[in-house]
């Protein structure tokens, strides 16, 4: 089906879809209602994505997201889905509104103390180590494959060990985050520092630039796109590390702690509220690092508009 190519209602695909909704409505009016909303929103998106107007890159996905929420709400309400299986979006919104201070406390414990501290320490250490081993090709050839190997491993499994070493509070979560982001950022930085052409390095030599001048003025800036590539992936890893590490023991606050205990009490609206907070925090963290990248590597071809 070529959506948008044919006028609505004329293409056989759309006629079939409408017929399907009609049949479903006869069999079960609730199913018919849900399908009707779905088809309606999809038709709107099909038309909109065929047009070209400013902002359609925001409008179309927004309609899709809102439609999913509406369908979720309708399904839960129409079929009386119990709250211990799937709470409706409005229930989750109500929970967020009511327990704002609990969510804030969990956010500070897990994100600010655990994830952010570990992220800064881990990424800082990784960049520092990468620069330290920069002068030794031997160490680089050895560390790069090992680091890349370790980055592909389920490092989250070190959480129980680190919780044992550093106690239940945020220090152990920060440690897990350090281990998770370190190797990723290390391999990206080492690879990035190697990302200059022979011509560019030769030019620096003709200027009689010292090693440190070359590093500071050419190679570090040239490495920034890859370093930020690692830093961006690391934002999400940091949040995951901090949350999952809390499953192995934590004080009585924190997002991972709240998720695991609320799941145990079947308070799923609380779980979804925490997940919403985690999603917003994760995207904002990623967005912030991406914004810094845009400011730092404004010269890079991928940043051109």
């Amino acid at each position: 089906m070529r959506a948008g190519a044919a006028p609505l209602g004329l293409s056989p695909g759309w006629l079939g879809a409408f017929a399907g909704v009609a049949v479903a409505a006869v069999v079960d009016w609730r199913l018919g209602a849900v399908l009707a909303v779905w088809i309606g929103a999809w038709a709107a998106n099909a038309v909109l994505s065929g047009l070209s107007f400013p902002g359609r890159r925001l409008v179309v996905p927004a309609i899709f997201g809102v439609t999913l929420l509406v369908l979720w709400q309708m399904t839960v309400r129409l079929y009386d889905v119990p709250g211990v299986i799937l709470p409706a979006p409005t229930d989750i919104a109500a929970r967020i509104a009511v327990s704002g201070d609990i969510l804030w406390g969990d956010f500070v414990q897990t994100f600010v103390k655990g994830a952010l501290t570990g992220y800064v320490m881990g990424c800082g250490a990784a960049v520092a180590v990468a620069i330290l081993i920069d002068r030794s090709p031997f160490l680089q050839r050895g560390l790069l494959p090992v680091g890349n190997f370790v980055a592909a491993l389920p490092i989250i499994g070190t959480a129980p060990i680190l919780v044992m070493w550093f106690g239940f509070d945020w220090q152990s979560k920060a440690a897990v985050v350090v281990v998770m982001v370190f190797f990723l950022v290390l391999v990206n930085t080492v690879a990035g520092l190697a990302d200059t052409g022979a011509m560019q390095r030769d030019l620096m030599r003709t200027y009689a630039a010292s090693y440190w001048q070359t590093l500071w003025k050419l190679r570090l800036p040239a490495a920034m796109p890859m370093i930020f590539n690692g830093l961006k992936i690391a934002t999400t890893l940091a949040l995951i590390g901090a949350i999952v590490a809390e499953f192995f023991g934590s004080p009585i606050r924190g997002m991972g702690f709240r998720i695991s205990t609320a799941v145990g009490q079947l308070a799923l609206d609380m779980v979804w509220a925490e997940i919403a907070v985690a999603a917003v925090a994760g995207s904002a963290f990623y967005g912030a690092v991406a914004a810094i990248q845009r400011a730092v590597t404004f010269w890079h071809p991928s940043m051109r508009r």
Binding site: P154, V181, P225, A234, I240, G241, P301
Partner: peptide, 16 residues
């Protein structure tokens, strides 16, 4: 793009 991450950070591994 060159700098676009191709990894599964949401999934908890950092392979790029």
């Amino acid at each position: 793009s060159l700098t676009g991450p191709l990894a599964a950070p949401g999934a908890g591994t950092g392979r790029s």
